[in-house]
Simulated assay, not measured.
Amino acid sequence: MNSRLGSVLLSLLMSASVMAGEYNLTVDRVEIDTGDFVKNGIGYNGASPGPVMRFKEGENVKINVTNNLDEMTSIHWHGLILPFDQDGVPGISFPGIKPGETFTYEFPIQQAGTYWFHSHSGFQEPDGAYGSIVIEPEGREPFRYDREYVVQLTDKHPHSGDRIMRNLKMMPDYYNREQQTVGEFFSDVSENGLMNTVRDRMAWGGMRMMKADVEDLQGFTGLINGKGPDQNWTGLFEPGERIRLRFINSSA
């Protein structure tokens, strides 16, 4: 009887250890090379993007986050169902993580799928503080695959997030590289007529917008898993294999 009880207890202990995972993350100053330019940024565990964090549905996770910056930081677990005080939004769910301190997030994993994590402090996220999350389901997947890749899409600009915001506040079209010229005005007059061209310019002027103002920030480099176009991130596979791609759009 004692032997059977001991066996049951051992089994329960082994099950509990499987259901609890502990992870460590550091928030660091890093160098980011896009292939077009190199800039200083912020990353996790010494790199940007940070690691792919892998959880299992049903487990309880403990994530120790150490802030190696000289400013406050935080981590928001984007899309995860968790207690509000673990959500990582400074001033709402918790105060934030001070320089040199370690904050431990603890929450149950209640879902499966593809998610991501990022800083919720200042402009640290567009400056490189992001990473991906893969959560395996408790049961069997409804499909089979031979291998998988996370494909995390983002972008980088040579300027820091703080500098970009400062420039945009000073001049909304600061980064607009397609502003119209006097020559284009006369070309439009030739094609569309004087009054139509003047009305068009006055309409845009009334909206306080440039005609080419389709986005407020130009000059960035698009990245896949931290690699620029010339660096050519590559996912290898064998002919005939079934590949699962987990796409995350974390562009700023």
Rank of each mutant, 00 (worst) to 15 (best):
D85C: 03
P137E: 04
S48N: 05
R244D: 10
D70F: 08
I133W: 02
S93G: 14
Q218I: 06
F237L: 02
P126S: 06
P83C: 05
N176W: 01
D162E: 10
Q231A: 12
M1V: 04
G128N: 08
G128D: 05
Y149R: 11
R208M: 13
E148V: 01
V61H: 03
N45E: 03
V30N: 06
Y175W: 10
G88S: 08
L194H: 04
S15L: 12
P172D: 01
N176E: 13
L236F: 08
M19P: 00
G205F: 05
Q110R: 11
R163D: 14
V8R: 09
H76N: 15
K98R: 13
H157Y: 12
T66C: 04
L13M: 00
L223K: 13
W77D: 14
K227N: 12
R199Y: 09
N249E: 12
N225W: 15
R29H: 12
V151L: 14
R208I: 13
S93K: 10
D85Y: 07
P239D: 07
S119K: 01
P142L: 01
A212Q: 06
M1Y: 04
E215C: 08
K227R: 14
Y149W: 07
H118V: 10
V38F: 10
P137H: 01
S17C: 05
G226K: 14
E57I: 08
